[in-house]
Simulated assay, not measured.
Amino acid sequence: MTDDRLSQIARALNRREWLPTATEMALGNAFFERVNRLVKEPQVPADLPPLESRWEAWLIQDLSLHARLHAEVEGELLPLWRGPLTDSPMLWLVERWVEIGRELLPFAERLLAAWNTAPPIPTAAELAAEQDRAHDPEWAAAQLRLRMARQWEVAVIPTVEQTDLLEPAAMRLAKVRSVLTAATTGDVDY
Results as ranks from 00 to 15, higher is better:
residue 28 G to R: 00
residue 89 P to M: 02
residue 137 P to L: 11
residue 136 D to E: 01
residue 4 D to C: 02
residue 128 A to V: 11
residue 31 F to V: 04
residue 10 A to G: 06
residue 175 K to N: 14
residue 121 I to H: 09
residue 166 L to T: 09
residue 30 A to L: 09
residue 114 A to S: 07
residue 79 P to A: 02
residue 67 A to L: 01
residue 97 W to H: 08
residue 177 R to C: 09
residue 188 V to Y: 01
residue 167 E to H: 12
residue 190 Y to A: 15
residue 70 H to L: 07
residue 129 A to N: 15
residue 56 E to G: 08
residue 139 W to R: 08
residue 135 H to V: 10
residue 162 Q to V: 08
residue 187 D to W: 03
residue 146 L to A: 05
residue 29 N to P: 03
residue 130 E to R: 11
residue 67 A to F: 10
residue 124 A to T: 11
residue 6 L to N: 11
residue 23 T to G: 04
residue 42 P to K: 08
residue 79 P to D: 03
residue 109 E to Q: 12
residue 141 A to I: 02
residue 107 F to W: 11
residue 176 V to K: 00
residue 5 R to L: 07
residue 84 P to C: 11
residue 168 P to V: 15
residue 125 A to N: 03
residue 189 D to R: 09
residue 167 E to D: 14
residue 95 E to H: 05
residue 164 D to C: 09
residue 1 M to E: 07
residue 88 S to N: 03
residue 152 W to Y: 00
residue 181 T to V: 08
residue 64 S to L: 00
residue 160 V to N: 11
residue 144 L to M: 08
residue 173 L to M: 13
residue 72 E to A: 10
residue 28 G to M: 05
residue 164 D to S: 15
residue 122 P to S: 05
residue 97 W to L: 04
residue 165 L to Y: 15
residue 59 L to W: 12
residue 97 W to D: 05
residue 150 R to N: 01
residue 187 D to R: 12
residue 9 I to N: 06
residue 120 P to F: 04
residue 159 T to F: 15
residue 149 A to C: 05
residue 91 L to I: 00
residue 125 A to C: 01
residue 175 K to C: 06
residue 133 R to F: 10
residue 52 E to D: 14
residue 124 A to M: 09
residue 77 L to Y: 12
residue 18 W to V: 04
residue 110 R to D: 14
residue 35 V to G: 05
residue 130 E to T: 05
residue 11 R to M: 12
residue 187 D to N: 12
residue 184 T to L: 09
residue 11 R to A: 11
residue 102 R to F: 11
residue 181 T to Q: 15
residue 111 L to R: 02
residue 57 A to F: 00
residue 183 A to F: 01
residue 113 A to P: 12
residue 95 E to T: 08
residue 116 N to P: 00
residue 39 V to N: 10
residue 171 M to P: 00
residue 71 A to I: 09
residue 48 L to N: 09
residue 101 G to D: 08
residue 96 R to T: 06
residue 117 T to W: 00
residue 66 H to M: 07
residue 156 V to E: 02
residue 85 L to I: 01
residue 186 G to W: 07
residue 180 L to V: 12
residue 10 A to K: 15
residue 111 L to I: 03
residue 176 V to S: 08
residue 126 E to V: 06
residue 32 F to K: 06
residue 129 A to Q: 14
residue 162 Q to E: 14
residue 132 D to A: 14
residue 38 L to R: 11
residue 140 A to H: 04
residue 67 A to S: 09
residue 117 T to Q: 12
residue 122 P to C: 02
residue 70 H to P: 02
residue 168 P to M: 15
residue 129 A to R: 15
residue 101 G to T: 05
residue 61 Q to M: 09
residue 127 L to G: 01
residue 94 V to W: 07
residue 57 A to C: 07
residue 25 M to E: 10
residue 166 L to P: 06
residue 28 G to Q: 01
residue 174 A to H: 05
residue 55 W to V: 07
residue 107 F to N: 10
residue 26 A to W: 07
residue 179 V to A: 13
residue 138 E to V: 07
residue 6 L to K: 10
residue 145 R to W: 06
residue 172 R to F: 10
residue 69 L to C: 01
residue 169 A to H: 13
residue 7 S to H: 00
residue 26 A to K: 00
residue 91 L to K: 04
residue 110 R to Y: 05
residue 83 G to V: 13
residue 41 E to S: 06
residue 151 Q to I: 06
residue 36 N to F: 13
residue 121 I to P: 05
residue 57 A to Y: 07
residue 1 M to N: 06
residue 21 T to N: 03
residue 64 S to D: 03
residue 157 I to C: 15
residue 85 L to V: 01
residue 149 A to Y: 04
